[in-house]
Design a protein around this nucleic acid. Structure first.
Length: 670
RNA sequence: GCCCGGGUAGCUCAAUGGCAGAGCGUCCGCCUUGUAAGCGGUUGACGGGGGUUCGACUCCCCCCCUGGGCUCCA
């Protein structure tokens, strides 16, 4: 057959093929390996099935199983098989939307008679899915009119709702809405005799291409993410192109669990959540308290250098303050209920510090010469988080904000935001976070105060500052606070997860609500702009992030105990204490553990407690004034290090905030 | 707040409608130790409250705490 069509490949080459060749046929013609790895194709920028016939002149790329697009197809196809399995096991179940998500997939169901999935059901669903996969059913695409689709899915209310939304012009991700001459067309995919779903595709050619999956958990989820709508039963799973990739994924989950700050907090005796106190209310033990103190001391020092003024405000206030600020209208549900005293006067625990700082600004007439005025406080606030969202130290009901409010003249705002952003990023880097991107959150659709123009000015100022910082900028439409837009700094940790840390918010609203003013050079009164800024976010949450980032092995400068001294035997105890005195005199946090058990056991214990340095002192050290040094992470110990040298090394680590305990400055003699 | 799980000693985990166990830890001895855990002993728990039962850790109800999600996040 002569080459009737010509297609172009990603490398720019042209290929002639018989007309009627499918994407899968193209893969075959290129090579056996590619054909084996092929799952779908990208034709003129649109993903299609391998069974799709290629048009003449098309640009075609084969989507392989180990690419991001290929994995998404595997996950999406696995979600179809899961829905099919659930329908086999629970005839009459309704199924909703089953997309691929990062690392896996889910699907939502409504079971007959209002039944719920239990963990045991996961095993049954898993087994049925493997039967379907063993049957190697083909995925067959069809296109139908809206009316045909409504008939086909007459018993599936969620599918009908999607189809009706397509008919009414909505863009649906889950159902194709390809316009043609006769109107909207709905594409569906069927596999086996018993399953068909709305779907844009593409899918793997047949269910036999799947199988490296694991169902991970069941959960409730509201239909369309709306808490006023029915709650469906969701099953989450993960799926990969190979057993090795699946195993690697499960290993990453284990790694995340190993780093879980709640586990580390208990293991290293840092903090706890006594039942008697209540949900989301941590207590910090001496070691955790030490880490906090070091974090806070360093932060204070940097703020002092940065021209911040330190203030302090009470934990409770009369109702009126939050009425004026507008918080009570929006957040009464998120606040602890008021205390009533003095004949009906209501007092609230503060859920934020801003109005207090505003009152400090307003305590007397202000001059433009005082601006920008940067107020700073470690303010403890209380928020009544919903019981279902409380989580370790990252979502608590009592938290310490490293809160700053900056009052400046409008014309100072761009410069101030610039320097604020670099101050924030600099401090985050000092704590060892290096990899950032920024998110710009714009005006929310409802609950926003102020004019569009004010919002635009503020948003633009933030955008310009973010661009100057030279970091990737992601838009978060509608994500701003009710009083203004914000930039948030997102940090990636050691295993690639992102955490929102610092936020910088522009606020024209509260200065107006509280009638703030300053007298300008022109002797007229002007309204200042207010910037809200939290750097750690909350001390508790930032500590959690650090613990997970470092897997508990904090840099020396942050470690609650920096050096532990181990005398080999009781005779060496006096020398051990002399070493301890020298370490403490050098400003280090250190202790001695006496010779009540073997050196090996004590070293092992210190390692599990993630101490940066452990020194062992025996007879030879006593005679020579040396120590034996064990550095965290080092393969073996180093004997006979002069004490002065060791102290210099550790104080250097502290001064430079070095991430890992380094080697000695100069190797000691042996 | 909603859905699905869980709560046994400080931690990790067992067992049973009829006397609740282990390892590690704690504490006390012994051992005097040069690098991943010396020996012996000791201590210590059914989250709380109701109910069913001759008898409840076990079955039922409520509450508290907690894990994973959903919703929320000033």
């Amino acid at each position: 057959m002569a080459g009737d069509i010509s297609i172009r490949l990603p490398d720019g080459s042209e290929k002639a093929l018989p007309s009627g060749t499918t994407a899968g046929g193209l893969a075959q013609s290129i090579g056996r390996g590619l054909a084996k790895a092929a799952l779908a194709a990208l034709v003129n920028g649109t993903e299609v099935d391998l069974s799709a016939v290629l048009p003449d002149g098309a640009e075609v790329a084969i989507v392989t199983e180990n690419s991001p697009a290929g994995r998404e197809i595997i996950r999406h196809s696995t979600a179809h098989v899961m829905a099919q399995a659930v329908l086999r096991l629970w005839p009459g179940a309704h199924y909703a939307i089953g997309p691929a998500i990062e690392g896996g997939f889910y699907d939502d169901f409504e079971l007959p008679g209002g039944a719920h999935f239990s963990d045991d059901d996961l095993g049954r669903v898993d087994a049925t899915m493997r039967e379907i996969i063993a049957e190697d059913q083909r995925f067959v695409r069809s296109e139908r009119t809206i009316d045909e689709a409504l008939v086909l899915f007459r018993d599936q209310p969620f599918k009908r709702e999607i189809i009706e939304a397509v008919r009414d012009g909505a863009q649906e991700h889950d159902a194709a809405a390809n316009e043609d001459a006769t109107g909207a067309v709905i594409s569906t995919y069927a596999n086996g005799e018993d399953f068909v779903d709305l779907c844009r595709g593409p899918h793997v050619p047949s269910t036999g291409r799947l199988g490296h999956f694991s169902l991970t958990r069941v959960a409730g989820a509201y239909w369309r993410g709306d808490e006023r709508r029915p709650q469906l039963q969701r099953i989450y799973g993960t799926a990969w192109e190979s057993a090795a990739a699946l195993a690697e994924h499960l290993h990453r989950l284990e790694e995340a669990e190993r780093r879980d700050h709640r586990r580390i907090g208990a293991e290293l005796d840092l903090f706890s959540f006594p039942d008697e106190i209540g949900s989301g209310l941590p207590v910090f033990h001496p070691r955790g308290g030490t880490i906090r103190r070091v974090m806070e001391d360093y932060s204070r020092k940097r703020h002092e250098e940065g021209g911040y003024l330190f203030v302090s405000t009470p934990h409770i206030t009369k109702r009126e303050l939050f009425e004026v600020s507008g918080h009570l209208v929006s957040f009464a549900d998120g606040m602890y209920p008021p205390m009533e005293l003095d004949g009906g006067q209501l007092y609230y625990l503060k859920p934020m510090n801003c109005p207090f700082h505003i009152l400090i600004y307003r305590s007397r007439q202000r001059s433009y010469r005082e601006l920008p005025m940067r107020l700073f406080e470690f303010g403890v606030v209380y928020r009544y988080e919903l019981s279902g969202v409380v989580h370790g130290l990252t979502r608590v009901r009592g938290l310490t904000m490293d809160d700053s409010h900056i009052f400046c003249a409008p014309e100072q705002m761009p410069t101030e935001i610039d320097s604020l952003l670099s101050f924030v990023l600099g401090m985050l880097r000092d704590f060892g976070l290096e990899d950032f991107y920024l998110e710009l959150s714009t005006k929310p659709e409802d609950k926003a105060l102020g004019t569009d123009e004010e919002w635009e000015v503020a948003t633009e100022a933030l955008r310009v500052a973010a661009e100057k910082a030279g970091l990737e900028l992601v838009l978060d439409p509608g994500g701003g606070a009710f009083y203004g837009p914000k930039i948030s700094v997102q940090a990636r940790d050691a295993i690639g997860r992102t955490w929102q840390v610092s936020t910088i918010q522009v606020d024209f609203q509260l200065p107006a609500r509280f009638g703030l003013e300053y007298v300008g050079a022109d002797n007229a009164r002007h309204r200042p702009v207010m910037l809200h800024r939290a750097l750690f976010g909350s001390v508790e949450r930032f500590l959690a992030i650090l613990l997970e980032h470092y897997a508990g092995a904090l840099p020396t400068w942050l470690a609650p105990e920096q050096v532990r001294v181990l005398p080999v035997k009781a005779d060496n105890q006096p020398y051990a204490h002399a070493v301890l005195d020298r370490l403490r005199a050098a400003g280090l946090r250190a202790s001695v553990e006496g010779a009540d058990s073997g050196v090996g056991a004590r070293v092992a214990r210190a390692r599990t407690q993630k101490l940066p340095s452990v020194v062992v002192v025996g007879d030879r050290d006593v005679a020579q004034g040396t120590v034996g040094v064990n550095r965290r992470g080092a393969e073996r110990d180093e004997r006979g290090v002069p004490l002065g040298l060791f102290i210099a090394e550790v104080t250097e680590q502290v001064a430079t905030r070095a991430v890992a305990p380094g080697p000695t400055v100069a190797a000691a003699d042996s």
